[in-house]
């Protein structure tokens, strides 16, 4: 019987790390630039959940983690903690982005058109190679810069869409100060925009499947390049510092009386993420709809409509960490449990 066996020990830990490295075979890994171009959706998910827009670091993280996307996002989050915030960029208007794909399921015809762009939505998931139809991608699709207003703007012009009151003034940044309940919408939106894709999907799915009343219609779903601008520190002018890949989604929910003036209007929800990930953006817009338009939902107490549940359970870095912490030794606490059980058993048998 060895006392040391139940303790970890530095050597064992180091050996475990070496074994992991051996398993992912760094010497055989693909060049970083190829990974970015051939696995763009992996990188986009890492960027979104890691809440740090860096292709270079996303690819490094993907390699380090052996392809585990949540682990990879974790690398980015950890790196964020060492970075000082340089400033706050100007807000982005989704109408202004350079569109790569944009659809609306609410309207057949929309200003700017339905632009399918690159998507795997229409691919039949068969392993056998399907021969390309030999068709050409038009020059317009390859070169033109497309911008279009939201497909919901027509409804807005006709005063049919509810506008939530902005009671916040300045948006919260949860990475600087995590708010207490009642949670400001900006905080919830930020937590959701960096939430774990699968968790977002599952929570949103509860709402759309029956535990809620949200069967939304996608008003405008778009991916594209958004310009990031800063105020120049010396000239005070607006300067563009670069472009980022983004996904936006506006969904339309049911109508009800607007508390402001008693008129009937449509509710809507908004979703956004870094990179191209439509499932995330749609899920987020449904959660936003459920949480912030509770009057429009059958069950305000449902999971997806509960801001306390969403804000505290949707972050993958947190839920993964805590789930895995159960692997840490708990023998002191478990032994204490057994002592209490012993006492209770003898007390109950008296």
């Amino acid at each position: 019987m060895s006392y040391v066996a139940i303790k970890g020990g530095t050597d064992a830990i180091n050996a475990s790390k070496r074994l992991f490295e051996k398993r992912i075979q760094p010497e055989k890994q693909l060049p970083e630039k190829d990974l970015l171009t051939t696995l763009p959706h992996s990188c986009d998910r890492i960027i979104a959940e890691g809440a740090l827009y860096s292709d270079a670091l996303a690819v490094k993280a993907l390699l380090r983690s052996g392809g585990d996307l949540l682990e990879a996002a974790f690398y980015l989050r950890a790196h964020r903690s060492t970075c000082r915030r340089a400033g706050i960029a100007k807000e982005i208007n989704s109408d202004d982005i350079r569109i790569t794909r944009r659809i609306s399921s609410a309207f057949k015809d929309i200003d700017g058109g339905q632009i399918l762009g690159p998507s795997c939505d229409y691919i039949i998931r068969l392993f056998q190679v399907q021969s390309s139809d030999g068709g050409k991608i038009s020059d317009i699709a390859k070169t033109s810069v497309i911008r279009a207003p939201s497909a919901l703007n027509n409804l807005r012009d006709r005063d049919m869409v509810l506008l939530l009151e902005n009671t916040e003034g300045e948006a919260v940044d949860v990475s600087r100060q995590f708010p207490l309940p009642p949670y400001p919408r900006s905080a919830l939106m930020q937590v959701m925009s960096r939430g774990e894709t699968g968790s977002m999907l599952a929570f949103a799915y509860t709402s759309m499947r029956g535990y809620g009343d949200v069967h939304p219609t996608i008003g405008d779903l778009r991916t594209g390049m958004a310009a990031i601008s800063f105020t120049h520190p010396f000239t005070d002018g607006k300067v563009k510092i670069g472009e980022i890949r983004t996904t936006f989604c506006e969904t339309v929910g049911s109508f009800q009386r607007d508390p402001k003036d008693g008129k009937l209007r449509l509710s809507n929800g908004f979703g956004f993420c870094l990179g191209h990930n439509e499932t995330r953006a749609i899920s987020m817009s449904i959660l936003d709809l459920a949480i912030h338009n509770q009057g429009y939902s059958m069950g305000g107490a449902d999971i997806a409509a509960n801001p306390e549940i969403i804000i505290n359970h949707i972050d993958g870095i947190e839920s993964m960490g805590f789930t895995n912490h159960f692997k840490l030794p708990h023998y002191v606490t478990f032994q204490a449990d057994l002592h209490v059980l012993d006492k209770a058993r003898s007390s109950c048998s008296d």
Binding site: F74, Y75, R77, A78, R80, S81, I317, E318, M320, G321, F322, T323, N324, H325, L328
Partner: peptide
């Protein structure tokens, strides 16, 4: 966020 997992 730290480079060790949340809960650790």
């Amino acid at each position: 966020e730290m480079p060790v997992a949340r809960g650790w």
